[in-house]
């Protein structure tokens, strides 16, 4: 007999070693998340996936599933917290959706829609961040980085390269690249690398593509992020 946890009263089976997030996704239950991508080791930094387990807040992407857990996920309170976290992500960086080519394919934007975000609510930080376009095929726009470290993990674990890394802490964090000059063009990044494909926002983009996909044919024109991430469409 397989083991189960309960998420919002629904019984969800899991295998030994799975996290709550793994079990939920396998069962088609959506827990909002940004820094998690099932292809990579969990990171637990964005906290969007926070759920209540037996009354305590935990990050579901890092919390192992344990027989009998009572998990609260889709509650007003948790979704309000998730909304606030998302709004903070928006004001911490410079996210100008109307002029961003990732618009319509962006997970940050899609999560914001899912959570019913109508405005950023908080004051914008308007940080000064650098755009690095020195690579012939790839552009790194740090204005849109949410420090999920998916590119860091992908470059290290899938590409075996370690092109990306984080430097600094907290609000002083920044995404750095592994070259003496500090420029992306001087790293060994290739446009085909997994690290280039994995960014949930428009921080890492392939050059010259721009707005080639028309409005109406972008992923989130047709699906919610919940549908996409629980198997209702391609995983971006």
């Amino acid at each position: 007999m397989s083991k189960t946890i309960s998420i919002d009263g629904q019984s969800v089976p899991f295998e030994e070693g799975q996290t709550i997030m793994d079990a939920a996704l396998a069962a088609g239950v959506y827990i909002p998340h940004l820094c998690h991508n099932p292809e990579f080791t969990p990171h637990g930094s964005c906290k969007l996936c926070t759920v209540k387990v037996n009354g305590r807040n935990v990050a579901s992407c890092t919390m192992p599933a344990v027989e009998g857990q009572e998990v609260l996920n889709d509650t007003e309170e948790l979704n309000a917290d998730r909304l606030a976290l998302t709004q903070m992500l928006f004001v911490e960086g410079n996210h100008l959706c109307p002029a961003c080519e990732k618009s319509g394919n962006c997970q940050l934007q899609a999560v914001a829609y899912y959570l019913g975000m109508m405005s950023p609510h908080y004051n914008h930080f308007y940080p000064q961040r650098e755009v690095d376009a020195s690579h012939p095929d790839v552009i790194l726009d740090r204005n849109r980085c949410i420090y999920c470290e998916l590119c860091v993990r992908a470059s290290r674990d899938a590409d075996g390269k370690c092109v990306f890394g984080m430097s600094g802490r907290g609000i002083g964090s920044s995404l750095v690249v592994n070259s003496a000059s500090g420029r992306l063009g001087d790293t060994n990044l290739a446009v085909t690398d997994k690290a280039v494909q994995v960014c949930p926002t428009g921080a890492i983009l392939i050059k010259g593509k721009g707005f080639t996909v028309p409005i109406g044919r972008r992923i989130f024109d047709h699906y919610t992020i919940k549908q996409i991430q629980t198997g209702g469409g391609p995983h971006e």
């Binding site: 100008l96 109307p98 002029a99 961003c100 080519e101 755009v131 376009a133 552009i139 726009d141 050059k207 010259g208 593509k209 721009g210 707005f211």
Partner: peptide, 14 residues
């Protein structure tokens, strides 16, 4: 200034 040229045609509409 400093933005990729691909973005400008969409940005300037504002």
């Amino acid at each position: 200034q400093g933005r990729p040229y691909t973005e400008v045609p969409v940005l300037v509409q504002r």
